[in-house]
Amino acid sequence: MLIIGELINTSRKLIREAVEKKDGEYIKQVAKAQEEAGATYIDVNCGTCIETEVETMEWLVDNILQVTSLPLCIDSPNPLALQAGLKKAANGKLMINSITFETPRWNAVLPLVKEFNTKIIALCIDDGGMPKTNEDRIRIADSIITKLTGEGINIDDIYIDPLIKPVSAGQKNGIEVLQAIQNIMEGHPGVHTTCGLSNISYSLPARKVLNTLFMVQTMARGMDSYIMDPTNKEMRRALIASQTLLGQDRFSRKFIKAFREGLYD
């Protein structure tokens, strides 16, 4: 299970304030907390800093790498910021968040994937826009995987994001994503799927409950990566317990270790 820690994002108030004040110690604190909570990647996103995004990305990466050896997921709509972050980040196998099948984005990001030999999150969006049906998701995912592997990208480095829509906007939005995950994983052995979970509960009460239960449901369909807050104990409890029940925890060692460390107190 690959966990991408989502907390270093300037859309979050405390991170934005730390960037504005050049408070590197706070950024280091957040990075270290995510590592200690079990993140395997740390996402770095300063896309709200439109005028200074390249410089801010470099500053963030410099601070993060002072306290962690985890590889980074460089996250930006701006290819120049992606490139700047990738050049600065030298830890392990890097990841880019994200590419789409839209022609401009594809042409801008694919060369970076090749140059830096990264893992890549691929959103199910093409020149026609967001998927309107489950069939659209599967079609776009099939096209992206075929094209990326045809360009020499290892299928093990591809993470398809099927794009979650709120169940408040359509009662079948949840089940359609579950069906897409299963279809994508079964249709392309070796590929991965990932997502951010919070969209599923948008505009509804008790969002943490919905997010946690949807994570469990997606795991049962084969999803093997999440963009999430690894310091959220409720999510970690559910994730580790689900891994154990799904046969992904040899001799239940992860679950026992987490219990002994007090996670289930």
Rank of each mutant, 00 (worst) to 15 (best):
A39F: 05
G222A: 09
P79L: 08
I155L: 09
L210F: 12
K147G: 00
T52Y: 00
Q217R: 12
M1H: 00
N97L: 07
E234T: 15
T231N: 04
S201I: 07
Y41F: 14
D62N: 14
N211Y: 11
T231S: 13
Y226K: 00
G170P: 02
L86W: 10
R250V: 12
S198C: 11
T100L: 07
I256C: 07
G128S: 13
G190T: 08
A220N: 01
I140T: 02
D156K: 14
D224T: 00
C73E: 10
E176S: 06
T146N: 13
I184N: 09
A108P: 08
K233S: 09
L204H: 02
G247H: 06
A39D: 08
S198Q: 09
H192C: 06
T194Q: 03
N199Y: 08
G170M: 05
L2I: 08
A122M: 10
G262H: 07
E25M: 01
V216N: 03
T68Y: 07
S242R: 01
L245P: 03
L65H: 03
V191K: 02
G170N: 14
T244S: 13
G196L: 12
A180Y: 08
G170K: 05
E135L: 10
E53Y: 03
I256V: 12
D156R: 13
V216C: 10
I164H: 02
L210D: 05
V216S: 11
I121R: 01
H188E: 04
N154G: 05
Y159M: 03
I120Y: 05
A108S: 15
F259R: 12
I121H: 03
L245A: 14
D142L: 11
D23L: 11
S242E: 06
L60R: 08
Y264H: 08
T231L: 04
I160P: 02
K233N: 05
C49N: 13
K165W: 02
N134K: 15
N154F: 08
V167Q: 08
